[in-house]
Design a protein around this nucleic acid. Structure first.
Lengths: 314, 314
DNA sequence: TGGGTGTTATACCCTGGAGGTATGGATGAC
DNA sequence: GTCATCCATACCTCCAGGGTATAACACCCA
């Protein structure tokens, strides 16, 4: 019927988070009575009770809880839309591509070079971003495209895989497992794994080799066998250093191993580890021509490598 | 800064689609001058020109095109939020699960049976939906969960795989390929393939066995080697009939083949066909407890089968 | 039990802005 | 040049969103 308004959603979220109309009003920079009225109007229009309230306490109903999580999504979408539009209308519109430093930068450079030779393409701005912020930057409209490696939070994004390579175990050379030719994920269980800052459970599972068939949403109980958490690292150089010192073992993409031969580290294939995949991601629903063209360029450029690596994996 | 309002987005979309303020105003049930003013206000607030307009014609700027596609996404999200909230606040809230008739119904029944025995679960409403409407129903808030098979439009959804099974070729028994033991996708090229109504390019590639490494967004040029389009079918019974009559060949999940032995059809493995996967999907960002519990139940119930089928495939 | 306090709801007012009408002014068709 | 079309401007109206004051209610504590 008649739509919700963004203002109403903002009001609702404030009240739902504070669970207190007065404080929420303060946070919104307005008086309490109009806020109460706005919420009442929202409830009447949705024909749904959002709060259970008496004069002493406010609680969310089931419908209110639904609206709270959903409104957050909607508000994020709307503000991302605004940012994208603003960027698209800038005096010198550019295509902003974000990637982490390291593995992807070489690949990214080749894609950009190939893209900019095409006719009528906007200038490309490369935004180097830290710890897996790539997805966030595309989600909230600061970037148009991201080169990132799975697993990552796919919400609000669409993506295509670009490159796939097997992962290998990086072990201290004097580690007992370094004696063996090939390993399985299970061999690594219980060993300390380097931790990335602010990593999600899904990421920890991936980097510890326990990511086959595990769900994010379903895990109401904490999953068993949390891996031993090793030292926190923030880039691959630091990671290798930690491994070399014997403080951890790690599952790393084979290209990183190839490019970093070290006497203190042994690399061993892990037959059942899920591969390392680099993807290109863009905002959900975006079919803008410069973005589509960049994606196509990236896919064309990596198609043959992808096939070759598929062969490696299987 | 200050957010966009839903009303403004609706106004903008109307004008952008009509490219005519008067007609757009008419469509919106309002007069033209306030609409012009609203758009001006929007442009000023975004500090972006959305339309190139003289008194005779209106055209979208690049920023306007961006906003048009993005606003459509945002409006869909907002109205889906409203519907979900309304449903969550219904007098007898139920969990609405949608699936297509056929393969999934047996699986769905087992999941529902297992779910309803759990304590404090809402009643489950099963919504049988037609041609791949499952994703749409979850996207727009009419359903909480969907059992569906990839490929499908993942926008606005999160999903987990449940079951995987290899696909086999269904051939008329007297077809020359039926003489051979095993096939490859390439053997099927050029043969007529049954078409589902309103199928997307990605779906057509999947069902014709050409879905490895092809992008939706990047295909600015029509992809080569469009498969010969066969008769239009709307369910698997019809599909088998068409194959039996020699009008087409099809790539179908092995379970369908197992359950439908027919003298007029030969089933042959296709070694490089991507597998048939059934997934469970829920609205992006939803972590509501009944939904999460259902997903977990589904995953637990299919975990062993999944593992077994993984072994089959590799 | 009665006052104090924090909190929401009600009553009432006020103002800004959304929307309407009338009309101007530009542009292309003929 | 004239006419039709369509966006912009000017000006008016009115209501909804917001403010202030205060009542009503629930809980705490003496």
């Amino acid at each position: 019927m008649d739509d919700l308004e963004v203002r109403e959603l903002r009001y609702f979220v404030a009240v739902a988070e504070e669970l207190n109309f007065s404080r929420a009003a303060q946070r919104l920079g307005m008086a309490q009575p109009p806020l109460s009225r706005a919420i009442r109007g929202l409830e009447r229009r949705l024909a749904v009770q959002l709060f259970e309230r008496n004069t002493r306490q406010v609680t969310l109903t089931a419908a209110g809880q639904t609206l709270l999580e959903q409104a957050a999504v909607a508000l994020d979408v709307v503000s991302a839309v605004a940012r994208r539009t603003r960027r698209a209308g800038a005096s010198t519109p550019s295509l902003v591509v974000t990637a982490k430093p390291g593995v992807t930068t070489g690949l990214l450079k080749r894609i950009v070079d190939s893209y900019t030779t095409l006719p009528a393409t906007p200038p490309v701005e490369i935004l180097v971003s830290g710890y897996r912020q790539q997805a966030d930057m595309v989600r909230d409209g600061r970037a148009d495209l991201a080169l990132l490696s799975s697993p990552y939070d796919r919400r609000g994004l669409e993506a295509e895989p670009l490159t796939t390579e097997p992962r290998v175990a990086a072990l201290p050379s004097d580690h007992e497992l370094a004696q063996r030719g090939a390993l399985r994920c299970q061999d690594l269980q219980g060993l300390p794994i380097p931790q990335w800052p602010e990593s999600s459970p899904a990421e920890r599972r991936y980097w510890s080799g326990r990511d086959r068939s595990w769900s994010e949403i379903g895990s109401v109980t904490p999953e068993p066998a949390e891996p031993v958490s090793g030292p926190v690292v923030s880039d691959s150089a630091q990671l290798l250093e930690v491994v070399g010192l014997g403080q951890a073992v790690a599952l790393i993409p084979s290209s990183v191993a190839r490019c970093n031969p070290r006497p203190d580290i042994a690399y061993r294939p892990v037959s059942d580890a899920s591969p390392y995949t680099t993807e290109i991601a863009w905002p959900e629903g975006s079919r803008a021509q410069p973005i589509a063209l960049f994606v196509r360029t990236a896919i064309n450029l990596t198609a043959d490598e992808l096939d070759r690596d598929y062969a490696d994996v299987s």
